Computed example of a mutant assay.
Amino acid sequence: MTDRKDQLAENLARVEERISTACAAAGRSREEVTLIVVTKTYPASDVRLLAELGVRHVAENRDQDAAPKAAQCSDLPLTWHFVGQLQTNKVRSVVNYADMVHSIDRNRLVTALSAAAVRAGRELGCLIQVALDAGTQERGERGGVAPGGVLALADAIAEAEGLRVAGLMTVAPLAGEFAGRPRAAFDRLMEIATDLRATHPAGNMVSAGMSADLEDAIGAGATHVRVGSAVLGVRPRLG
C-alpha cells in the first residue's frame, strides 16, 4: 500500500506541476483551477489514498461502480462528481452520493434528477455537457447538447427544484471543425460560458481538459480539469 501511495503522490506532483505551469503561462492564479481526479475502474482503496494525499474532488462515470465506492468512502471529506452519460433509471442512485453532475444534456434528465433530488432532500450542482461536434456521425454515445440548446436547458435546470445551474462541461471533440484542435474547442466553450453567465451568473464552472489536454483547457480559462490516467495510471481494460 505504501508503494501505491508513493506512486500516486509522484503522479499527483507531476500533474500539479503541469497545472501550475499552465496557470502561470496563462497569467492565472493556481487557485483558479480545481483538480478533479477521475477514479473510474480504480478501487475505493485508491480513493482513500488520494484523500490522504489531499485530493478533495473525485469523479466517476458509471453508477454501478460509483455507488458502492462512494458508500465505502462516505467518511472522507470528498466532493463527488458524476461525469458519465446518465440514464434516467440511474438517477435515484446517483443523487445519493453525487454533489455535481457534469453530463446534463436533455430536459428529461433534468426532470428525473429534480424529482430524485427532492425525494432525497439534496441539491445537485448541474453542468450542461456541450457537444462541440454536434451533428457529426462520429459522436456515437458521448452525449451532450448542441451549443444552441444550452441556454434553454439552463433555464430548465434553474426552474427545477433541487437543482442549480453550476456551469458547462465538454470533452475535446473527435470529429467536426474542432477535431484535433482542443484549444480552439475550449475557447469556443468559454464563449458559450460567457453567454450562460449573462443569464445565470452563478453558473461559472467550466469543466474541460483531461490528462492529454489540460494545458489547453487551462489556457482557455477552464475552472476544473478532470484527470484520470495521469494520476492513477493506465486504466485496466473493462471486460
Rank of each mutant, 00 (worst) to 15 (best):
L132D: 09
A193P: 08
G203W: 03
D155C: 08
E191S: 11
A120I: 06
Q85M: 10
V110K: 04
L127I: 13
D65M: 00
S74L: 03
L76C: 00
V110E: 07
V150A: 05
G135P: 13
L232C: 13
A222R: 02
T2F: 05
V165I: 08
L153K: 12
E177G: 05
A230W: 11
V95C: 03
A26Y: 07
L153F: 07
L127V: 11
T111N: 07
G125V: 11
G84S: 04
L151G: 02
V150E: 06
G149H: 06
M190F: 12
V38C: 07
L53M: 04
I157C: 10
V15A: 06
V130I: 05
C126N: 13
A66W: 00
G27W: 08
M100Y: 10
A222Q: 04
A25N: 15
M169Y: 02
I36W: 02
P201L: 09
A44C: 08
L12P: 01
A59E: 02
A146M: 02
T88I: 02
V38M: 08
D187G: 10
A208K: 01
S29P: 07
G135T: 09
Q129Y: 02
A66T: 00
A152R: 15
L214F: 03
A156T: 06
S29L: 15
E215T: 15
D155G: 14
P201D: 13
K40R: 05
V206M: 06
M190V: 12
G219E: 13
G167T: 14
K5N: 04
V55A: 00
T2W: 04
V95M: 01
H102A: 04
N89R: 05
S29M: 14
G149F: 14
H200N: 11
D213R: 15
G162N: 11
A134R: 09
R197N: 03
A116M: 08
N89F: 04
T199I: 10
G162F: 07
P236T: 10
D63C: 08
G125F: 12
A212H: 15
D6Y: 08
E141R: 15
L127S: 03
A71T: 00
L189E: 12
G219R: 09
A175M: 01
D187C: 14
P43V: 10
A152I: 13
D133M: 11
A131E: 02
G219D: 13
A115M: 09
G203H: 09
S114I: 15
V227Y: 04
A166E: 13
E191D: 12
P147H: 07
T199F: 11
W80E: 01
R142H: 14
A26K: 11
T34K: 10
A230E: 06
V33F: 01
M190S: 09
L53S: 00
R119E: 15
Q7D: 13
A51P: 06
V110H: 01
G54V: 03
A212V: 13
M1H: 12
D6T: 15
G125T: 11
A66G: 11
T79L: 06
N89Y: 12
K90G: 00
T223V: 06
V101E: 02
T88D: 00
T41R: 07
D195C: 11
G239Q: 09
T170S: 12
F178Y: 14
L124C: 10
S45F: 10
L214T: 13
L168K: 07
L76E: 00
V33W: 01
A71C: 00
N204C: 15
V227W: 07
